[in-house]
């Protein structure tokens, strides 16, 4: 039927009483992709996910999942998604295996099939040894994995995870990331996070959201490239400070520069080239010509951190 696209969102707007949570959001996600929804708290990530999971209706706009309309064919959509909400709500009085079986049966798996699948996901999420423990008594890391196992148990085509690593320790975060990565290909995954490295590490593509809009959508590498064009060049050169200042002032390609003393005879020069030119070769030639010595010459790449801050706080960047 619809083989290429998993999620298609067009002109999605969501208004709560007196507050607009989403404004004209559109994006598509292809089958098998891992897409990160990135943005600060309150950007509209959870609202988007709730609408995708057929929990909340959209005010305007359409959302289709695997070709089914989220509002009209809600049941078909819910059959195809595994959704883990923010804060991972669980029935704390139930035992792990009992809970997963209950969830599998709710999602329409037969008795025999649910037994098989529960065993599989428990192994996949390393829950086997806590199968008969009460969920409320588990550590946060285990609880999170129970939530993940629940999202996976019926082998959904699309997995939607809202902040899956929030509140975990670094070791647990790595384990969860590994698990998410292992889902690529067989499943389409949409995860939301406000932590950059997470999206950087796990996702093929990122959607950056801010105040209910999507500001940028691209692969982590492309987003970096986009920003690297006006990256700074750092050169550490042993030369008289006045000469350096004069040299940079003369060069037309240098828009801004800053010379500060480093240790020994060296000075650290931070140069901002015009229009994203790469001046490294030129600088090396100039230094050689004058017989100075050069010990470092790098082009600083913007990390996703910078991109994130730039895209999400456009006004502050100007100051």
């Amino acid at each position: 039927m619809n083989n290429g696209t998993m999620i298609e969102v067009t002109g999605l707007t969501k208004r709560y009483a007196g507050k607009t949570a989403l404004t004209d959001v559109s994006f598509t996600v292809a089958r098998g992709e891992i897409v990160g929804l990135l943005g600060p708290n309150g950007a509209g990530k959870s609202t988007t996910m709730r609408i995708l999971a057929a929990f909340l209706p959209a005010t305007t706009g359409t959302v289709s999942i695997a070709g089914w309309d989220v509002f009209r064919d809600s049941e078909e959509v819910r059959r195809r998604i595994g959704y883990m909400p923010e804060n991972n709500p669980l029935h704390h009085e139930m035992r792990v295996r009992e809970y997963l079986k209950f969830r599998a049966r709710l999602k329409g798996l037969t008795r025999a099939r649910s037994r098989d699948r529960v065993d599989t996901v428990m192994e996949q999420c390393s829950l086997t040894e806590v199968g008969s423990r009460i969920i409320g008594q588990l550590s946060k890391g285990f609880k999170q994995r129970v939530g993940l196992a629940d999202a996976l148990v019926h082998e959904p085509e699309l997995i939607i995870l809202d902040e899956p690593t929030i509140g975990l320790d670094p070791h647990q975060i790595r384990a969860v990331r590994q698990l998410i990565k292992s889902l690529a290909g067989a499943h389409t995954v949409l995860i939301s996070t406000h932590i950059l490295p997470e999206a950087e590490m796990t996702c093929n593509r990122m959607l950056i959201m801010y105040e209910g809009r999507i500001l940028a959508a691209d692969t982590p590498e492309n987003l970096q490239k986009l920003m690297a064009s006006n990256g700074q060049i750092i050169a550490e050169i042993a030369a008289p400070e006045a000469d350096l200042n004069e040299l940079w002032a003369q060069l037309p390609e240098v828009e801004m520069f800053d010379v500060s003393p480093a240790d020994g005879d060296y000075f650290r020069c931070a140069l901002t080239p015009r229009e994203g030119l790469d001046l490294r070769r030129q600088i090396f030639a100039l230094v050689q010509e004058r017989g100075w010595s050069l010990r470092e010459l790098t082009r600083s790449r913007h990390t996703l951190e910078d991109i994130y801050v730039r895209v999400t706080r456009p006004d502050e960047e100007e100051n």
């Binding site: 999971a53 929990f55 819910r78 883990m84 909400p85 669980l90």
Partner: peptide, 14 residues
């Protein structure tokens, strides 16, 4: 209040 209503209603139950 515990949020399990969300996980419940996003399964294909009527």
């Amino acid at each position: 209040s515990s949020g399990t209503f969300e996980t419940l209603m996003t399964t294909p139950v009527r």
